[in-house]
Each structure stands twice: as structure tokens, then as C-alpha cells.
């Protein structure tokens, strides 16, 4: 078996400011990698570089493609990257408004990725959208409503359904429980954990919330000032933090 994603020497600077520096890790199929750190630590820069939204200054992001095996996504054409982005990859934004089309019904939002890869049977598309909406616990009676009429938690669940409908092999998540109430967060986390385990998804998830990674992540990277200061199995890092910064991070939150 080879890693689904191999990252080496990934760096991104903004002028004199370090976005992220010399990040390297492997992500194995079915594995969930958590990236934690406070805001400004470089975790979002890293995620955007991985997902191809930002061009890194140096380093490689090698993805094990279905047809051609491991390929550096930076060397791909824009057409290949976009194809990947709507087939094997998924990206869950913190703010569902960034990841949804607010002028399109929930069903249309979920169906878009299917149509983007060539689905042309209305009934089938609708059926799959319905199936995915019910999997994320959205009343299918509301599938023709626009997301603007949904609560924040529902919007986030529609975004997740929209991302997962084409069966992606790699999911990037940026603070998926970010702007939600605590009780809504818990329900969403529960849902995410169920989906990740059942579908065997490989995930890179960025968050400042240790409770999220405790529940979801197999492994953890801790970032500070653009650098990875500690990494290891989630329980290990959280229960026995080695680096001073990680210790501070763990001790500053209530026990989870």
C-alpha cells in the first residue's frame, strides 16, 4: 500500500511573513489527519496549499490518482486539478456560504457534482441527492428549498452532502464546526464521525478545537508560527504532549 497523499517540504511565505514552512507528512487511505493550532499558526495556509487553492513556494503534494498513480498536484494542469476537485477531492469550508451556491436548491447543490462529471438523468441525480440529504439528516421534503432558508447547522450538512456525493477519496475540512452553536456542533461532529468511519474516508481536517480532533482524528500535527512543532497519534499528543506549546494548548482547554 502507498500513501494517498505525500507531502514534502511544503512552504509558503507572504513577503517576510511565514505562512507555513517545510511541512511534510503522509496520509494513508482511511486515515484522518488533524492539524491544530491557534489562528495565524499557518494551518489554513497549509490546507489551502494542499487543496491547490494557493500555490506553495516550494515542496510537493503528491496524490495517488486513480488512473496514473502518484502525481504531484502542483505539476498538474488547471484542467486536471479542477477535475480532481470535483471527483476524488472534496473541500468543506468553515462558512457553508463559501461552499454552497446560495441561489440553487439544496438538491441542486448536491446534484451539481454529479452533473459536473456527466450525469444526465434527472431522476437518478435527484434520487442520489435525496439519498445524500437524508444521510446528513436533512428532511428530503426541503430538497427544493434554497440553503438561505436553512439554519447554519443544516447548511453545513448540505455542504457535506454536496461534497461526498461523488464518493471522494480525500476530504479537506476547514473548521467544519466553526461558526455553530455547541449543541449543533456536537450533532455535526457525531454525523461526521459516522460518515468518516462508515465510508472509510481519508481526511485532512484543520481546527483550533481540540475536541474535534479528539473525536475525529487518528493522527495530529500541532502548528505554531508556520512550523509543525509536534506530531503523533491523537491520543498520544493530547494525553502526553511533549512540546511546550502543545502543553499550553492542551492545558488551556477544559478536559475533553
Amino acid at each position: 500500500m502507498i500513501p494517498l497523499l505525500q507531502v514534502t517540504g511544503l512552504s509558503k511565505r507572504y513577503g517576510a511573513h511565514v505562512g507555513c514552512a517545510d511541512v511534510a507528512f503522509d496520509l494513508w487511505p482511511g486515515e484522518v489527519m488533524g492539524i491544530v493550532g491557534e489562528s495565524g499558526s499557518g494551518k489554513s495556509t497549509l490546507l489551502n496549499c494542499l487543496a491547490g487553492h494557493l500555490a506553495p513556494d516550494a515542496g510537493q503534494v503528491i496524490f495517488d490518482t486513480r488512473e496514473q498513480g502518484p502525481r504531484d498536484t502542483r505539476a498538474m494542469t488547471e484542467a486536471e486539478r479542477r477535475w480532481l476537485a470535483r471527483t476524488d477531492w472534496a473541500y468543506v469550508h468553515q462558512n457553508p456560504r463559501d461552499g454552497l451556491r446560495m441561489g440553487v436548491s439544496a438538491g441542486g447543490n448536491v446534484g451539481e457534482r454529479l452533473m459536473a462529471v456527466g450525469a444526465r438523468h434527472y431522476g437518478d441525480i435527484r434520487g442520489q441527492a435525496q439519498d445524500w440529504l437524508s444521510r446528513v439528516e436533512i428532511d428530503t421534503g426541503r430538497m427544493d428549498d434554497r440553503p438561505g432558508t436553512f439554519s447554519g447547522g443544516m447548511q453545513q450538512r448540505v455542504q457535506i452532502a454536496r461534497n461526498l456525493v461523488t464518493g471522494p477519496r480525500l476530504v479537506f475540512m476547514d473548521e467544519p464546526t466553526g461558526g455553530l452553536d455547541v449543541s449543533v456542533q456536537a450533532r455535526l461532529l457525531d454525523l461526521l464521525r459516522g460518515l468518516v468511519r462508515r465510508l472509510g474516508l481519508s481526511v485532512v481536517i484543520v481546527t483550533h478545537d481540540l475536541a474535534v480532533v479528539r473525536l475525529l482524528a487518528d493522527r495530529l500535527m500541532v502548528m505554531k508560527d508556520g512550523h509543525v512543532v509536534e506530531e503523533g497519534l491523537t491520543d498520544q499528543v493530547l494525553d502526553d504532549p511533549q512540546h511546550g506549546y502543545t502543553q499550553l494548548l492542551v492545558s488551556s482547554v477544559l478536559h475533553v
Binding site: G108, G111, E112, I125, R126
Partner: peptide, 15 residues
Amino acid sequence: DYGLMQVRLYEDIAR
């Protein structure tokens, strides 16, 4: 990249 065009037609049928 014509998925969005098809979405527009989907929305018509749904509505």
C-alpha cells in the same frame, strides 16, 4: 466545466 449549466436546467425541472 459545464456542470453549472446543467444545474440551472435541473433547478427548472425541480421548480
